[in-house]
């Protein structure tokens, strides 16, 4: 997961209902909360209400959320290929 745009809300970023940790932190393996199991799609961007934005570089079954509010997929306006 890559942070494309930072935001205050990311301090409570969760995936599958569990708090997300930094790359170098030791993950605390917990199961996915069935309430947050819609999953993420590779290459899609997800946004929080404060504008914070994430790019999914490895997809999974957990839903991204800030607290209990799921992030939403950003629908990008398609640009014509230019190079």
């Amino acid at each position: 997961m890559i942070v494309v745009r930072a935001g205050q809300s990311l301090s409570d970023l969760r995936c599958g209902g569990a708090p997300m940790v930094a790359l170098d932190a030791r993950p605390n393996h917990v199961g996915i909360d069935p309430e947050f199991a819609v999953g993420t799609v590779l290459g899609k961007r997800y946004v929080a209400t404060d504008g914070a934005e994430l790019l999914v570089t490895k997809p999974g079954q957990g839903t991204l959320s800030i607290g209990v509010v799921p992030l939403v997929v950003k629908e990008a306006a398609p640009l014509p290929a230019s190079d």
Binding site: V4, L42, G43, K44, R45, L55, A76, P78, L79, A81, S82
Partner: peptide
Amino acid sequence: VTTTVDFAS
């Protein structure tokens, strides 16, 4: 790339 191109589009 990530702001001008949609992945696998």
